[in-house]
Write a protein that binds this DNA or RNA. Structure first.
Lengths: 223, 223
DNA sequence: ACTACTTATCGTCAAGTAGACGAGATATGA
DNA sequence: TCATATCTCGTCTACTTGACGATAAGTAGT
């Protein structure tokens, strides 16, 4: 028994105060005309993560290094693709605000959609991509708590307020600016002050930070 | 391009105060005579989780329901199996103390090995199974903190001390019995008292508990 | 320049939590 | 009966968390 193996991508970014996922409109059956997660077949001599990186670059023009990419889960129900048996390894990618994507090779159209809208039920994604998207959202929300993942949504240098904004958008809550500031600046290895300041958000100038070396947040940032 | 798809199992149990993993000795090349994780090919009309359950039952005779089983990660480096391109979906299984396993169909021998011993470097597992085992251990350790996973290592009814023992073995630390008792009994939905008591550990009789309905521990049990 | 407004950062206080550890309860075995 | 082991509850102190006051330091308008 042999299988086709694909990678599918849940790519999140924050645009206009909303968490958005990259979707492509399918140009061929099955599910022609429906929105789907970007993805494609794993090549003959290609590692899974490399395939994910390649697809991400093809769809977004990202330079491979700046964004976060991790394996999410693998989906292989017998009839998830009506044509043949396909096992799909899903990856979760997070990136700072990205431009409107250009249509890729096999996609009729590519676009950012707010995640809320995609998961509201009115617009069903192709295949089992609703489930994959939900799993990706869950993972992202959970990892914000105990990992420095939120910095992946920010540019290389960012302010505490910009970081807080990421948490607020992804979790859909409001956080107290003063307590948030205390927590992130005292979490060991989370943030490194650059010494520079910025006034790009108006008001008093804010310290700029870079992401630190910590892989785990201690203590975690609670929801 | 097509791939063979397998499931590999990281099965943990606690035996003689040690965390042990189930291993099989390979009866055929490649890696003939080396220890490996149990696993096998996914069948034509079989979901991935079903394949994992089937393999688990074949290797251990478990009844499918009593133990914890979750997807771990997927491994698909181009030459991880020298024969052909194989993508392996790894599952993590946890179970209460199990009997010495019987040799399965294609395995020359099956045995529990202490995880410390397997990861000490002296005994290399076949394929990339060392990496899979390490990832499984990491996952299990992490999930003990914020999920009721530790109960999967216990029988249906267990005492607080037995539960603490699980944490101590998996984490390799000593925990204060009094603080541990306070934490697990006050974590919402973690434990449900049965009303029965036992003296099976000597000393004053201990309350017996069953696992509660909680999926997440709040607050977590800290290492 | 002065005022109004915005955002950033620090400080305070009360309530809750965690870790160290004392102490009593209740079993077993000598 | 006594020693010993384990289980369970309590206490104390240090720390953390969340609510929120206050001040700092910019911009924009007049």
């Amino acid at each position: 028994m042999t299988f086709a193996v694909t990678v599918d991508l849940v790519v999140f970014t924050i645009r206009d105060d909303e968490l958005c996922a990259l979707t492509i409109r399918r140009g061929a059956p099955p599910y022609r005309g429906r929105w789907a997660l970007p993805g494609g077949f794993v090549l003959e001599d290609e590692d899974l993560m490399d395939a994910a990186r390649r697809e991400l670059a093809e769809e977004t023009g990202l330079d491979d290094r700046r964004e976060h990419l991790e394996q999410l889960a693998t989906y292989g129900a017998p009839r998830r693709d009506p044509r043949k048996r396909v096992v799909s390894v899903a990856y979760l990618a997070l990136a700072a605000e990205l431009p409107e994507p250009a249509a890729g090779s096999d996609a009729a159209d590519a676009r950012w959609h707010p995640v809320d809208e995609l998961l509201s039920g009115s617009r069903r994604l192709a295949f089992d991509h609703d489930e994959i998207l939900r799993d990706g959202l869950e993972r992202a929300r959970a990892k914000l708590e105990y990992s420095p993942l939120a910095t992946a949504f920010c540019k290389a240098e960012f302010t505490v307020a910009e970081l807080r904004h990421v948490y607020e958008i992804v979790w859909g809550v409001e956080l107290d600016p003063r307590n948030f500031h205390r927590k992130v600046t005292s979490a060991d290895g989370f943030l490194v002050a650059t010494g520079e300041q910025t006034t790009r958000n108006g008001g008093r100038p804010a310290q700029l930070y870079r992401r630190g070396h910590a892989a785990v947040l201690n203590p975690p940032i609670s929801r």
